[in-house]
Design a protein around this nucleic acid. Structure first.
Lengths: 396, 396
DNA sequence: CCAACTTTCTCCACACTCAGGACAAAGATG
DNA sequence: CATCTTTGTCCTGAGTGTGGAGAAAGTTGG
């Protein structure tokens, strides 16, 4: 199949493509109602899009009391690849033009193995998805990496947890391998985009998306757009100091949020509690290598283990304290909490909420929902697909 | 004189008005180079603006090697009123259309005297400026109040330090009295706008403007636009907790930044040091009522008083700690520090910088200037004029 | 089965926008 | 004084977009 070559020629066309992406197939008449254009002008633009092959007319819709309308939809063969590289695993998914996930693979892998090894794995997974018949090729790909990115160039910069990636031309390299346009972003920003597109943050203009996985980061959305900061490191809240002379952090400082609570810190604390005999529940869950994960802590808490509950509560207080500050500063309309620790669920959420509602000003918290993300591992890959589709569905 | 009645009819006209405002008088040819429009189209739009009276052609400019150009400038009679209501004083200024301050008055007054009394004073000051011949009337006014504002309506909401103002229709009332359009915003946002227009933040897209006066607030500028948050309380950093069980704050919580450092807290600490005999320098500066101000502390520090220096240093550390967190989160291109405490100058700046550069990530601080505002009390009124002119210089 | 009404879509005439070139005006230069 | 440069105006032609007329295709009720 010939891949997507054309791009919208003007903002009207871009607008139409996004409407079709977000609202599904539609008739010319209904599109006309949404884009404040005359029927005639709209017909012209739709015809031009039909000529480019970006959209197709397939069949007639049911009548709504008059002549039946032609269904206009995005080309059904369009495929986007969404890649989410986490600290300890890789997610890859294929979507159609409406960004619905058609297939999704996950593979545990440490980013610290470096860009070359990770890329090989990503390409293998992409090939597997293609082989399964879900795609004959990709029209675009979005990829998230767990660290700051110089966005225009698509290159990671000074990533603390991913040595070896600094300056690696992710966009360039992946584009070469896949033969399609690629956009690169921070994994946290993509999670925010995903939740905005298909999750809890639909129709919210300004919100924060806190991702607690191996580390902690925060996606910032302002007026519906991801805010990336001057050097692309906005949202890097893992190294905010929460304890003047606290624990040593990998970044070289002491008392960073991430050192006190995160997937990694929680696992370490739980292992410690298990070995020192403070929790039989946790001890029973130690694996062969003497390791625990956030999931084990969640299970122990569900079984009523007070030590596990304490760990979660204390962690929630730490994050909540930081989020309370951010809420005062940013005054968001919504706070989403996601990442690996969502398994800790409402125990975590409860302590976060307590801190925020107690510490931040009533005006900022009065109507502020604090909720868990609803897309789980799909958020990142959906956000990645959204990133590239936003890029391709804008005037060239 | 007839006041400004017309508004730009389209974005081109709005663009031209702003160019003339920010770049001063200009020829048609030079304007054409700046707004990607053909000479003919530009001539048409300029002619239409001339017809409305918003701009005038006055005289010929010097030749640049060919035919001399006609100078196009904003109507010289346009006048904006900028009002900055602080916690303890009121600033009022008149500007021309280029936002140059033509006259500026200051009057000490406590906002807690309520909106009616404050308004009376503002109107008196405006009348005095008018009587001095600087303006025959006002084409628009901007006003800043020390608390959150529901921006579209121009109404203060739940202002902690200004009881009695909650819900008072500031925009409506002032517009009625002055007979011209009015826009209302938080005083901190206006300071940010002022520094962006004519101060240290020119040509910076994303920056923070921390105002330390009686309280502490922070103006947030994203992509050149002030970010106000979902309910208009964005930037309210005075009540971020900096000490788990710290001092009691007026807001009802404990350990708020504002309770530990701000103009008010610093004065209290200084008075305490003076009375308990810890600082002779400060004791010597006590006024009849046993009061001190930030200026006294600055003077004592300049005289080498170690207690005063300690107070400044400790305060700077507190604010620096919070700013460090905000820098990690927001990744600004510039941090401006202003407000009443700028008199503390480089002693304060030094401790803020130390905290930020030590605690925030290198990627965020690498190229980050932290500077004092350069406009002083003019920042707020300039920002106020800018606010209303931005409003009036946009398509109706 | 037919008349009346709806909804969808196409076609066409007209207005408006805007670019670019020709040209006039006004000055500099040698 | 001839030539060049810069500025500003006028005009034509291409393209953009609106709104109305009307054809196409359906529903509804008698």
């Amino acid at each position: 199949m010939r891949r997507m070559t054309a791009r919208p020629a003007n903002t009207h066309q871009a607008r139409l493509l996004r409407l079709l992406r977000d609202g599904g197939p539609n008739s010319r008449a209904q599109l006309g109602d949404q884009v404040d254009l005359s029927r005639s002008k709209l017909a012209v633009e739709v015809d031009r899009l039909l000529e480019t092959g970006l959209v197709v007319a397939d069949g007639l819709a049911a009548s709504r009391g008059g002549r039946r309308s032609h269904n206009i939809r995005l080309a059904p063969g369009l495929r986007f690849l969404g890649v989410d590289i986490g600290a300890t695993s890789i997610d890859v998914a294929v979507t159609n033009a409406e960004l619905e996930v058609l297939g999704h693979l996950n593979h545990p892998m440490d980013v610290r193995e470096g860009p070359v090894a990770v890329f090989e794995q990503v390409l293998t997974m992409a090939a597997k998805l293609r082989a399964s018949g879900l795609a004959e090729g990709f029209d675009g790909a979005g990829i998230g990496v767990p660290g700051p990115v110089r966005f225009p160039e698509g290159v990671p910069v000074a990533p603390p947890i991913m040595p070896g990636w600094d300056g690696f031309p992710v966009r360039e390299a992946l584009s070469q391998e896949l033969g399609c346009p690629v956009m690169v972003d921070n994994d946290v920003n993509l999670m925010a985009l995903g939740e905005q597109h298909a999750g809890v943050a639909r129709s919210v203009g300004d919100f924060l998306c806190v991702k607690i996985g191996t580390g902690i980061g925060c996606g910032i959305v302002v007026g519906g757009e991801v805010y990336r900061g001057t050097t692309g490191s906005a949202g890097d809240i893992g190294h905010i100091q929460v304890e003047p002379d606290g624990r040593a952090c990998a970044c070289g400082n002491r008392g960073c949020l991430e050192a006190h609570f995160s997937g990694a810190a929680l696992a370490r604390d739980a292992e410690d509690a298990a070995r020192t005999g403070r929790s039989a529940e946790l001890a029973a869950r130690l694996d062969g290598a003497g390791k625990l994960s956030a999931i084990d802590v969640a299970a122990a808490a569900a079984a009523g283990d007070p030590t596990a509950l304490d760990l979660i509560r204390e962690g929630g207080n730490r994050v909540g304290q930081v989020i309370a500050g951010l809420v005062s500063f940013f005054n968001p309309g919504l706070v989403v909490i996601g990442g690996g620790v969502t398994g800790l669920g409402h125990n975590l959420l409860a302590s976060v909420r307590t801190q925020v509602y107690r510490q931040s000003l009533p005006l900022a918290t009065g109507n502020l929902p604090i909720v868990l993300g609803e897309l789980g591992p799909v958020a990142g890959v959906t956000g990645a697909a959204r990133l590239i589709s936003d890029h391709l569905f804008s005037p060239a």
